[in-house]
């Protein structure tokens, strides 16, 4: 068992503003427009490696090409609760993803939605209500929804757990 391969789950983050990019310490540059980090997540006694790809809010992320999307297990759509346009764009991002990644079963492909930056200005600058966001998620086939603050790490762990769980549902038992 010791040498058993870890399950690798590939998670793609899309949205108007990069989500984890703060953790990437400004390493983005215009030339590639994406970066990734890996994170170990324990879920139901199994250890997973989440490989999380972030697009840094690139609108022209299509240019990243097939390598970026290949084998995605979960897509995380992020918006900024303080910016209405970022919420309105969720639908575009979702459709863009389905076109680019063309998963075999688009109806059941696991998405997760994150309402981010809830900490800003003590929540006073918020323009998208949780209710509104949840309603949209429900209309798209009950996408799990989390409110997070990447800066303070609030709820981030729960979101990662959910990504692992959802991605896993679609993961076939891989055999050699």
């Amino acid at each position: 068992m010791a040498s058993r391969r870890r399950t690798l789950l590939k998670v793609i983050i899309l949205g108007d503003s990069g989500y984890v990019n703060k953790k990437f310490s400004n390493q983005y540059k215009a030339t590639i427009g994406a970066d990734f980090l890996t994170k170990e997540v324990q879920f139901e006694d199994r250890l997973f490696t989440l490989q999380i790809w972030d697009t840094a809010g690139q609108e022209r992320f299509q240019s990243l090409g097939v390598a970026f999307y290949r084998g995605a297990d979960c897509c995380v759509l992020v918006y900024d609760v303080n910016v209405m346009k970022s919420f309105d764009n969720l639908n575009n991002w979702r459709e863009e993803f389905l076109i680019q990644a063309s998963p075999s079963d688009p109806e059941n492909f696991p998405f997760v939605v994150l309402g981010n930056k809830i900490d800003i200005d003590g929540g006073n600058s918020r323009v998208v209500s949780e209710k509104k966001a949840r309603a949209w998620c429900a209309s798209k086939g009950n996408i799990p929804y989390f409110e997070t603050s990447a800066k303070e790490g609030f709820n981030v762990e729960a979101a990662f757990q959910c990504m692992a769980k959802n991605a896993l549902k679609n993961e076939p038992e891989e055999e050699m």
Partner: peptide, 13 residues
């Protein structure tokens, strides 16, 4: 030092 963000990322908006 790690490469600086060139600030041109927002070029898309």
């Amino acid at each position: 030092k790690p490469p600086e963000d060139h600030g041109s990322l927002g070029g898309g908006d």
